[in-house]
Amino acid sequence: MISRRCFITGCFGLVAGFWWPQVAFTQDKPASQRQEGAGLPSAEGMSRTTPWDTIQWVERRYKIEAVRFKARDETGIDWLGSDEVIIQTNDAKGSTVSNEIGDIDSGDTHSFDPAISCVVAVRPGVAVLGESSVCEEIGEPAPMFFRVEFWEKDFFLPAGFCIPTTPRPGEHGGPHCANDGTGDDFIGNARIDYSTQELEAALPNVGNDLIETVALDPCPGEICAGFPDYTFTWRITRLPDAQVNLGVLANEAMQRTGARSELEAIAAGLRALRAPNPKKIKPDTAR
């Protein structure tokens, strides 16, 4: 297996091969004769001369599926009625959304069929969590993240005005909005991040899985709906490794971002990296 460290070293080696002669030539000139940036290759020029398709490596792949949620305490006063719940998940390639899950009272648990409840590595197109959200067999590489958000539907106002966007090629989205803007109550949300090192340690072999649970934050900022208490449980599974071609990835990134070259697309991806958030999760032993 070619490690990611080897790949990164190879990329910098290629860059150095193009860049170093230019730097050496520039340094031979007196400072008064040099212009800022003179002698340095452009991103477009380096992209045209770099054999991106020959840069390949093998990486580990994973998928994440919803397992269940529990209402430890529903919204509002328990005896006034039940919660009608809609769930939305987001990852790097789009979103999924559930249909309304009704009659949820304090202490109730709702289970998902993981085979149709994919959260990360969702097949492109329209995805309904718990009904038609299916994972692609190839999965996704680490690092990865997802965000989950719960809303309680209200019916005091006419139908909502939220119009969901059509998924772009290679991405996924739901057929409706979790919050349609007509007074729905916010239940809670959470963002989960997994680093490469974390997943490699937790899931060393193909077929390994891990079930974890997070308590949703009911009041991020000033949004609050009577301090509900919900948990969300998911399963992450290691899939077979995949061979990756940098040229293919770079071309896909150029189409999505409008980058003018492979190097610009790679640079945009590096700039978008963010430090993972601490996770308030715990292993789930209920099988």
Score class of each variant (00 low, 15 high):
72 R>T: 08
80 L>N: 07
59 E>P: 11
74 E>C: 05
92 A>K: 10
128 V>G: 04
108 D>G: 05
64 I>F: 00
35 Q>A: 11
141 P>K: 04
102 G>I: 03
143 P>H: 02
83 D>A: 13
132 S>L: 00
50 T>W: 10
36 E>K: 07
45 G>W: 15
90 N>D: 09
104 I>Y: 03
115 A>G: 07
118 C>T: 03
117 S>C: 01
98 S>A: 01
84 E>C: 04
54 T>K: 14
68 R>D: 08
127 A>P: 02
120 V>R: 06
106 S>R: 13
131 E>T: 05
89 T>W: 07
118 C>P: 02
95 S>L: 05
89 T>G: 11
137 E>H: 09
54 T>S: 13
53 D>I: 04
45 G>N: 14
40 L>I: 10
137 E>F: 05
105 D>T: 09
38 A>W: 15
57 W>L: 15
106 S>V: 09
115 A>E: 14
128 V>M: 06
92 A>H: 11
58 V>K: 15
96 T>Q: 07
54 T>M: 08
115 A>M: 04
93 K>S: 06
68 R>W: 04
129 L>F: 01
48 R>N: 13
86 I>S: 06
93 K>E: 08
83 D>L: 05
52 W>V: 09
113 D>Y: 00
80 L>C: 05
76 G>I: 09
125 G>A: 03
73 D>K: 13
104 I>K: 08
136 E>W: 09
80 L>A: 10
100 E>H: 11
66 A>D: 01
34 R>D: 09
138 I>T: 13
98 S>I: 04
93 K>Y: 08
84 E>Q: 10
90 N>I: 06
130 G>Q: 04
141 P>T: 07
110 H>E: 08
100 E>T: 13
82 S>H: 09
105 D>I: 04
46 M>L: 15
79 W>F: 10
133 S>Y: 01
135 C>R: 05
101 I>W: 04
130 G>W: 00
137 E>G: 08
45 G>K: 14
81 G>F: 01
125 G>Y: 00
101 I>H: 07
41 P>A: 15
63 K>H: 06
58 V>Q: 14
40 L>V: 11
126 V>W: 14
117 S>Q: 04
78 D>C: 02
47 S>A: 14
46 M>D: 10
108 D>I: 02
46 M>R: 12
116 I>G: 00
